[in-house]
Amino acid sequence: MRTQLNLIVLAILGDNAGPGEPSETYPGMMWGDTTAMRLRRRNNVNDAWIDIGPLDDFLGDVKKLVSDTAAGKVSKVGDTMTGSLTMKAANISYQYASGANAGYIGTYGTGGAGSGIGIVNSAWNAWNFQVDDSGGAIFRSTVTIANNGGLYSGGRITIRNSAELALQGPYVFYIRPRGNSGLEYVNNAYNNVVGSIDDAGNMACNGEMRTGGALVAGTTMYTGNGQAFVSGDGNVYGAVWGGYLSNWMGNKANVNARVQWDSGVAEWGPINGPTTLDIPAPWVMCGWRTNSNGNWVSGAQWLRGVCLRNQ
């Protein structure tokens, strides 16, 4: 009896280990299958064996399953992903260290045109930034580009609702919409429009306009608030010329031109003795007549002159 009890106890302690299943089976009994090296348990209706796991480590399968499953998961702290993470109809919410909401990254639309991703504010009631499916981006407020960075776009950048560009260096220079169309350039103190350009291409400048190259005008270039100008053909118009420079120059003699007589010959005299006789302007002396028959003392002398013109 004692020997039989010892065998029963050893069988229980050894999970009935053996190459074949026990001859007598009971619900819930264990069997250490040394052929397959698997630990098995009899089901409750005593008609089949349930595989528990490896004979030497019956939790091995469970641990492997947990390990394999964990390998495909992301740890909440300090983990690294090497593949894509897909979230359907879900947002990524952020909080400050205090626990206050900092906003979230989410999607809008249902896919395709008019859909995209964006960043929502901490109150969760407005999109601070949106990027649609076609690559268009919308900023809710000010965009600051720091540390000599740049903003690049392969398409159009649209600034809505009369927003402005503030270009900041040692000073700030502003570019803003002009009325219903065009642009205005505003000084650093934001109290003077220093230049503008309208929708037709007309440009205004309150100060000097300098260029390191050619300044080209398609038609007329004005100065003096429109009182003088340079025409497209190169002619100059101004009060100093009395009109067009070409007309003013047309009334002048050409270089090296010969002067012409503008009158007949007139005489001044006679000179019968010591005296002084001047020919009045604009006459110039062209000759001298005498009746002295060689007697310069007893005869009379006449000065002869003509008026000249430049052409």
Rank of each mutant, 00 (worst) to 15 (best):
Leu308Cys: 14
Asp68Trp: 15
Ala71Cys: 05
Thr25His: 10
Asn225Lys: 09
Tyr190Trp: 12
Thr35Cys: 04
Ile12Gln: 07
Arg176Glu: 07
Val265Asp: 09
Ser67Gln: 07
Ala71Phe: 14
Arg40Ser: 13
Gln168Trp: 14
Met209Trp: 08
Gln4Ile: 05
Leu39Ser: 10
Gln227His: 03
Lys64His: 11
Asn293Glu: 07
Tyr94Arg: 06
Val259Ala: 04
Arg40Val: 02
Lys64Leu: 08
Ala89Leu: 00
Tyr171Met: 03
Glu208Trp: 02
Gly226Ile: 10
Pro270Asn: 03
Asn44Phe: 08
Val9Asp: 11
Asn101Phe: 01
Ser181Glu: 11
Tyr244Ala: 08
Met29Gln: 15
Asn225Glu: 08
Ser93Tyr: 12
Trp288Asp: 10
Asn147Cys: 11
Ala100Arg: 13
Val297Ile: 11
Trp248Val: 01
Thr69Ile: 06
Ile8Ala: 09
Asn43Phe: 12
Met37Asp: 12
Asn272Leu: 06
Ala137Phe: 14
Gly28Asn: 06
Ala200His: 04
Gly14Ala: 09
Gly60Cys: 06
Arg140Tyr: 02
Leu183Pro: 00
Ala257Arg: 09
Ser246Lys: 13
Met203Lys: 02
Lys252Ser: 07
Gly299Pro: 15
Arg178Asp: 14
Asp79Cys: 05
Val143Thr: 01
Val255Pro: 00
Asp133Pro: 00
Ser246Pro: 01
Pro270Gly: 05
Phe173Arg: 06
Val259Phe: 08
Arg160Leu: 12
Gln311Lys: 12
Ile12Tyr: 09
Gly243Cys: 12
Gly264Thr: 15
Lys73Thr: 06
Val265Ala: 07
Leu215Asp: 08
Val240Asn: 09
Gly294His: 13
Glu21Ile: 03
Arg41Ala: 09
Asn191Ser: 13
Leu167Trp: 04
Tyr108Asp: 00
Asn272Tyr: 06
Gly232Leu: 06
Gly234Ser: 04
Leu5Cys: 03
Asp133Thr: 00
Trp261Val: 03
Pro282Ile: 04
Gly154Ile: 08
Glu164Leu: 12
Asp33Ser: 12
Cys286Phe: 02
Gly20Pro: 00
Asn125Phe: 14
Ala17Met: 03
Tyr94Ser: 02
Pro27Lys: 09
Gln4Val: 07
Ser231Gly: 07
Trp296Leu: 10
Ser93Lys: 13
Thr3Glu: 12
Gly179Pro: 01
Asn256Ile: 05
Gly250Pro: 04
Val9Phe: 05
Val120Arg: 00
Asp233Ser: 13
Trp127Lys: 01
Gly242Phe: 10
Phe58Ala: 10
Arg42Trp: 03
Met37Phe: 14
Ser153Leu: 06
Trp288Phe: 11
Ala166Val: 10
Asn128Ile: 05
Asn291Pro: 13
Val297Phe: 10
Trp31Thr: 03
Ala281Lys: 11
Ser292Met: 09
Gly224Phe: 01
Asp278Cys: 07
Gly118Phe: 13
Trp248Ala: 08
Asn225Leu: 04
Asp278Val: 09
Thr107Gly: 01
Asn188Ser: 15
Ser98Ile: 02
Phe139Gly: 08
